[in-house]
Design a protein around this nucleic acid. Structure first.
Lengths: 229, 229
DNA sequence: CAGTGGTCTAGACCACCGG
DNA sequence: CGGTGGTCTAGACCACTGC
């Protein structure tokens, strides 16, 4: 009668999908389930905690565990380093640094990175290639007050993306996804048509010393971000 | 000297971000860390397991725990029911069923849903509104062999999205995000310009009896998917 | 083979919060 | 207040896999 937490989880999922436990209903407490299934309470806890993290259950002290009414399923995307992403597709990776300067950043970047108005971040523009064809365009600001070492880095050999990932681990970050139209410049860089719809990803990351970098990635037309639920 | 798993996790993160433990390096074993930090091995295990799930550590039996070289950070998006999403923005939700029929599905849908060629799914087209303005367009196929009850559902009152979420919990699913251009029809439906860039989300879900539904969601221009890292 | 992580158990105490 | 989940502990056995 011994149970593993995966077994318990599967059994709980079965009762939910077979509608023995309806959305919104209260399910038995940990102790009761542990007793019924013949395992320790901690084991039940582990199983239920994961389902709560997935958004399938709602757990509150004293109130007990409920099946969520309108399940907000969560999807997890991997955000790999560009090189790994390209090589993972079986393609040869290349990148080209288009521009590199230290200058005033636009107001919306300063505010996103919470930088003082006189802070002059490093500004980079780069293209990532897969098998020699454009894969993504990158526009990036780096807070030199937090990672001054990047000023001396050879960003032609290792992309800023990769350099930062390996030299400035972050503790928090924001990410936003949207679509944008290719203007003439983007069309030339990505070798696509003006007006093409492009997937745009904006990220900003920070450590405990403050904002590290903000980046805007524009992917080539047809690019899709995939995941499982 | 007692430690909580959050404390342990924070300490490990500190050692990584302060580069005491470099990317690629082997960190002490659970037992050693537990001893050093003055807590039970299970507590260390809990802390490290979460970091491994986040893609910061790589754990292998016998090989030990390594700091990942090219951290593949993972971002988690909530995929709420459209109504909840709209109401969560403080707007009034509405939806309108544009079309509802049972018919042959295109080949790529049949293959995505792994349906037999003679399976005639339910086909739906609907618009979701926020404060009376278009928010997203939805095109959906539903496998009537798995959820025949939807044939009798009043999908004008409750959207198919919500009906399925509450009546056909799924166990697996795929999701893909991309960008597409508004054709004339989409432009009219979403009240935007032809050629506008739109965020497109495709989902397909299945239970143990097979594929449940495949849906294509096209969001209004300017819509962004947000998350934290 | 042997070392490392993965998990289970029983018991305990605590924190939160609904009634 | 008291019930519920959240967590810690010490010890144990197991599973995988590098050497």
């Amino acid at each position: 009668m011994a149970q593993s937490w995966q077994t318990v989880q599967a059994e709980v999922m079965r009762r939910i999908t077979e509608r023995l436990w309806l959305p919104g209903s209260l399910i038995p407490g940990e102790a009761e389930l542990a007793n019924e299934l013949g395992c320790a309470r901690v084991t039940v806890n582990r199983a239920l905690r994961e389902l709560a993290e997935k958004g399938i259950l709602d757990r509150k002290r004293k109130a007990g565990t409920h099946v969520v009414k309108n399940p907000q399923r969560r999807a997890t995307f991997a955000i790999p380093v560009m090189r790994i992403q390209v090589e993972g597709r079986g393609a040869r990776y290349d990148h080209h640094l288009l521009e590199r300067k230290t200058s005033q950043a636009p107001a919306h970047i300063l505010s996103r990175m919470k930088l003082a108005a006189d802070n002059q971040p490093l500004y980079l523009r780069a293209l990532h290639f897969a098998d020699g064809r454009p894969f993504a365009f990158e526009e990036r600001w780096v807070n030199l007050h937090v990672v001054p070492e990047i000023a001396d880095a050879d960003l032609d050999t290792m992309s800023a993306n990769e350099w930062l990932v390996n030299n400035a681990p972050f503790t928090r970050g924001d990410l936003s996804l949207g679509a944008c139209k290719a203007n003439q410049e983007l069309a030339e860089l990505l070798q696509c048509e003006t007006g093409d719809a492009l997937l745009e990803m904006e990220r900003s990351t920070s450590g405990k010393e403050g904002s590290i970098t903000a980046v805007r990635l524009i992917h080539v037309p047809g690019y899709r971000l995939l995941t499982e639920l």
